[in-house]
């Protein structure tokens, strides 16, 4: 196996007296989908935001392909090839769908401060190609703020894919969507990243989604690592079953694994 794309060591964050993430370490291998799961308040989002640069860790180290990125601002991390989607989709609501993606290209090619060219005409073909891939080409000219939520999520994915990242950070990619849409979006994501060899770190509530697509799982509870490993191993871990999955969770995991097989 090649060098891990993302290496997290001893990550720690406290808010006031409450320790949100307590010495968490993990590695995301190239081309793999890595999921962080855990009940509410387990520290998933905090962990995530420390990797993405939105939060500064109290201790620990984040390395991207061997390069230390701990504490870098999100924009720098993005430039190093990390795409990002948010729990609540963040897009440029007053722009069209295609302009949203064009912005990522404009930024990637470092033309943000150009004063004279017409932005709408820049990298349009490239942006359309990405939209085509996520199935949003037919809505390219619509205002992003007016889309259905599931479609906004697809746009976000397209934005995140624009600069051909080696790592995608997806915080609850399917939150707020109907069950059918969730499966579809995650299947789409999985297809794209596998065909392009992109690694993915994601958090997720929906066990169907997690067990259907993740290669490796990390289970957090109250900031601590409970278990880590393949879906099979995690599903069978008695402690995970006790504190987190419960009976119904195990069933869901079982169902998803069968569907995948």
């Amino acid at each position: 196996m090649s060098e891990p794309v993302l290496q997290v060591e001893g990550l720690r964050k406290a808010f006031g007296g409450v320790i949100a993430v307590d010495t968490v370490s993990f590695e995301v291998a190239a081309g793999r989908l890595f999921a962080i799961i855990g009940p509410n308040g387990a520290g998933k989002s905090t962990c995530f935001n420390m990797v993405g640069g939105q939060l500064l860790p109290d201790a620990g180290r984040v390395q991207l392909a061997g390069q230390d990125i701990t504490g870098l601002p999100p924009r720098r991390i993005w430039r190093l090839g990390v795409g990002r989607t948010f729990q609540v989709a963040a897009t440029f609501t007053a722009m069209t769908v295609v302009e949203n993606v064009q912005m990522a290209f404009i930024s990637h090619r470092r033309r943000l401060r150009a004063l004279l060219p017409t932005a709408r005409k820049l990298y349009r073909a490239e942006a359309m190609a990405v939209l085509e891939r996520v199935g949003m080409a037919d809505q390219a000219e619509r205002q992003c703020g007016l889309l259905a939520y599931g479609d906004i999520k697809r746009v976000e994915l397209a934005i995140a894919l624009a600069h051909e990242p080696r790592l995608l950070l997806m915080d609850e990619p399917t939150a707020g969507m109907a069950p059918k849409e969730r499966i579809a979006l995650m299947a789409l994501t999985a297809d794209i990243v596998r065909e392009r060899g992109i690694s993915v770190l994601f958090t997720e509530h929906d066990m169907d989604v997690v067990f259907a697509h993740a290669d490796t799982l990390l289970v957090l509870d109250r900031g601590r690592t409970v278990a880590t490993g393949t879906p099979d191993a995690v599903r069978d871990n008695p402690e995970v079953q006790r504190i987190y999955l419960g009976g119904s969770g195990v069933e869901a995991a079982q169902r998803a694994m069968e569907a995948r097989a």
């Binding site: 939105q54 924009r75 963040a90 440029f92 007053a94 930024s107 990637h108």
Partner: peptide, 13 residues
């Protein structure tokens, strides 16, 4: 203006 979060996440200072 539309989203500081997204702007930051596509490399905009």
């Amino acid at each position: 203006r539309d989203s500081t979060l997204r702007a930051d996440a596509i490399g905009i200072d």
